[in-house]
């Protein structure tokens, strides 16, 4: 019986993951990293990483969960918690509808409970296709519920960030999600539980200035843009061009804000190892 459910869950996730690609539709695609051409299929089979230079295309939330979690272990938390329009902002409901239709997501984050190499954990993945992965009250609420679920069940937590920052149309309520998620993580941490933060391209604005920077361990995908202010804002402020590599994952590691850079192909293995090193299921006591 259990096996049937597992197979069904695995198939469901695989179907959702299919829509999670950011690769252009052409048969031959040009890498924005090295400018070389590769057959689309080859890139897709390589977890959306350029086989020539290692450039990491962003990937969708379900796609990431699909290659990260043990087959059949995925169970989504709070799938039906959509954004509202708290400021009655003109045009916002239509924007949300379009984003939902285009991505098949209900919001910019998917939260799930699952297992990596047999170790149960709670995983949240932001998806930058949905209004730039911006932080709405729904994103903040889903993340907070996931943190609380992990805390209640004494499970380790992994959050993959990918966000342009605040959801403008929700104004101050978007800002308040920074305090809400950070406070929830403080409570979670007091229970002695593990939080792994994985920064992917791009992690900026209010997400960097809240939960993304608060991991016990912070990992990043190669080349990911990571910062508080966006590069354009900084360039306007200082009136000069930023040097090559500024605010990239490698730069952030050099400056002491990232523990390790992990290529996508090794993520599952590294996360599995870190979960293992923190005891069975991250349990401390």
């Amino acid at each position: 019986m259990n096996n049937i459910f597992q197979k069904r869950r695995a198939r469901l996730l695989a179907m959702k993951a299919l829509r999670g690609t950011y690769l252009p539709p052409e048969q031959i695609i040009t890498c924005p990293g090295c400018g070389q051409e590769s057959p689309r299929r080859e890139v897709a089979d390589n977890l959306s990483v350029c086989p020539k230079c290692g450039y990491h295309w962003p990937v969708g939330a379900y796609y990431r969960l699909g290659f990260l979690l043990d087959a059949g272990s995925f169970r989504e938390l709070d799938p039906k918690l959509p954004a509202e329009n708290p400021l009655s902002f003109p045009g916002y409901p239509e924007k949300l509808q379009t984003a939902r239709r285009r991505t098949g997501l209900s919001e910019a984050v998917v939260t799930a409970v699952g297992a990596i190499q047999g170790q149960r954990c709670v995983t949240a993945v932001l998806d930058s296709r949905f209004l730039m992965g911006s932080m709405s009250a729904a994103v903040g609420e889903k993340l907070t519920l996931a943190v609380e679920y992990a805390g209640r069940n004494r499970l380790p937590l992994i959050i993959f960030s990918a966000s342009g920052g605040a959801r403008m149309q929700e104004g101050i309520l978007s800002l308040m999600q920074m305090a809400k998620t950070s406070a929830a993580l403080a409570r979670f941490s007091e229970k002695g539980l593990l939080y792994l933060s994985v920064l992917t391209d791009p992690t900026t604005g209010g997400v960097t200035a809240s939960f993304a920077s608060l991991g016990d361990i912070i990992l990043a995908e190669p080349g990911a843009l990571i910062g508080f202010a966006g590069p354009r804002v900084i360039e306007q402020t200082i009136g000069q061009q930023l040097p090559e590599g500024f605010q990239r994952a490698e730069f952030m590691m050099e400056h002491g804000f990232v523990d390790a850079i992990v290529p996508r192909a090794r993520l599952r293995e590294v996360l599995g190892q870190l979960l293992m090193l923190h005891g069975k299921g991250g349990r401390h006591g």
Binding site: M178, A179, A183, L214, G227, F228, A229, V233, I234
Partner: peptide, 26 residues
Amino acid sequence: GAYPGMQAEEHGQGEAIARNLYEMSR
């Protein structure tokens, strides 16, 4: 707002703000 400068980024503007939210909450 927080200063959007080069050195501010190098010194972890995002981390500093996040840490304050986290610690102030308790």
